[in-house]
């Protein structure tokens, strides 16, 4: 019998592939949200597997805020070209022009205009009826209650109290016009699973995940990467002094916009180091994501508004 035993990674892989195929078979115009992070990398690799030897039957879409790390843009363009995928980049130009910035607008508002609005506008513009996201239930407590197929109303909003029960592998994908579905094929993966799979499949990831000496400043106990005073404080309102900038061995456990992504002190230079570090971690993955920390239900609120 053990001959027919699937490892946990292979079971997770099969589940994710099943979900992706179900979406492509039952919905008209799906898109895969691609944020360039490790989860997106795994999701993309799984999509390639689900449809091999065909090419991806949907485009990738990056909702760009303009505040991502330069390493992320570089990686994105190289990687997408290499695997031959179609990439759509969408930005909420209106608010980018207005200089929306977390330091002045506040995290919640900045996220709302640049990410949530950016996403909702893009979905409407292209007429997508389903969008894959790389969110995992383990990441955050409101996500633990999220469905794999999450129906959103015509404004892209999530109603946590009115979710469809999900039974067996029988996903109900029927929606009305203007409604959309967010689909989370990585729902049951954990951070360790993601890294173990990256190792197993030798999936390329942005080098920011690996530790090296980086320039940072420390604000409210969070280690913020310091690329230039420009990125953190473009209008120089905070009066950051050069003496505040220090150098330390650190890496990023999650990637987002530069001003809102905290680094962690770490010596993990290889994937094995990272797996070891994550297994022994005493802090959760998103502890340094400023956008989660604004209140006890920050993420739930964002999701209700249409965030993924």
């Amino acid at each position: 019998m053990d001959h027919y035993k699937q490892s946990h990674l292979k079971q997770l892989e099969a589940e994710s592939i099943f979900i992706m195929r179900e979406v492509v078979a039952e919905l008209k115009n799906p898109v895969m949200l691609y944020s360039v992070g490790k989860d997106s990398s795994v999701m993309l690799r799984l999509a390639q597997k689900a449809f091999y030897p065909d090419k991806l039957p949907f485009p990738l879409m990056h909702i760009d805020t303009g505040y991502k790390f330069p390493e992320m843009y570089e990686f994105r363009d190289k990687h997408v070209k290499k695997i031959g995928a179609d990439l759509i980049v969408e930005r909420n130009e209106e608010w980018i022009k207005k200089n929306a910035h977390p330091t002045y607008l506040g995290n919640d508002k900045c996220c709302y205009y640049l990410k949530t609005m950016g996403l909702l506008n893009a979905i409407e513009k292209h007429g997508f009826d389903a969008a894959f996201g790389g969110a995992r239930r383990e990441e955050e407590k409101s996500r633990a209650k999220e469905r794999v197929f999450s129906v959103r109303d015509k404004h892209g909003q999530w109603d946590p109290k009115n979710q469809r029960p999900e039974l067996w592998q029988l996903y109900n994908t029927i929606i009305d016009q203007k409604e959309t579905i967010r689909v989370f094929p990585l729902s049951n993966w954990t951070e360790v699973d993601i890294w173990e799979y990256i190792k197993l499949e030798q999936i390329p990831v942005v080098p920011l995940y690996f530790s090296k000496e980086r320039k940072v400043i420390i604000r409210d106990n969070v280690i913020i990467p310091f690329y230039s005073a420009e990125t953190v404080d473009p209008e120089n309102k905070l009066n950051i002094k050069n003496s505040q900038v220090e150098t330390m061995m650190c890496r990023f456990r999650t990637l987002g916009c530069i001003p809102c992504t905290g680094a962690v002190r770490s010596d993990a230079k290889t994937i094995d180091d990272i797996i070891r570090e994550v297994r022994e971690a005493k802090k959760s993955e998103r502890e340094n994501r400023l956008i989660d920390l604004t209140s006890d239900s920050a993420m739930e609120q964002k999701k209700k508004e249409g965030y993924f």
Partner: peptide, 18 residues
């Protein structure tokens, strides 16, 4: 996980733990 659950001190929905 949900704010309504914490407010009402009840669990409304199935949650998944790992």
């Amino acid at each position: 996980g949900l704010s309504a659950e914490r407010e009402q001190k009840i669990t409304i929905d199935v949650a998944y733990r790992y």
